[in-house]
Design a protein around this nucleic acid. Structure first.
Length: 141
DNA sequence: GCCAACGTTGGC
DNA sequence: GCCAACGTTGGC
């Protein structure tokens, strides 16, 4: 199946690693995930998958979209073999960052994992949700 | 294997 | 700064 692309959302506090820094870096490896469910989602990412980038705590908004450039490999920041990272590169900055507030009131986003599972840092996004988010972000890919 | 205690995340 | 939600740990 060549066209089995999945869509994801990752969360990060901008004080830890911001979208702006990500843009300056041009690429990054997504480290620091220490939760099994999030880790399993990282492992399921395929090269070329789209990844929404959300700023938690400060801003609380989706800043843009990234793309998976390398699939899961062992986290270089730890010796613990349980944890993995993926490589991401920025794809598009949202023309209009989409706030958590906007997401919560949108009728097609009531089931989004971002709201339902607020503590999960890596989560799948449905096709429908991604279409809505891109529209809200006034961005096309 | 259960569950209380504790730690962490993240919205408010 | 508070606290709800949830994950982890450790005693039994």
């Amino acid at each position: 199946m060549p066209d089995e692309k999945s869509i994801w959302l990752v969360k990060q506090e901008p004080s830890q690693y911001s979208w702006e820094k990500f843009l300056r870096d041009g690429k990054t490896y997504w480290d620091g995930v220490r939760n099994y469910q999030a880790r399993n989602n990282l492992r399921a990412m395929k090269k070329g998958d789209m990844v929404f980038f959300y700023h938690s705590v400060i801003g609380k908004e989706i800043k843009g979209i990234a793309k998976v450039t390398r699939e899961a490999y062992p986290d270089p920041t730890t010796d613990d073999s349980r944890w993995v990272v993926v490589d991401l590169k920025p794809l598009k900055t949202f023309t209009h960052p989409v706030s958590l507030e906007e997401i919560k009131v949108h009728k097609d986003l009531h089931e989004i994992a971002l709201v339902k599972q607020s503590r999960l840092s890596v989560m799948p996004i449905t096709k429908k949700e991604s279409r809505v988010l891109l529209k809200m972000g006034k961005t096309s890919i």
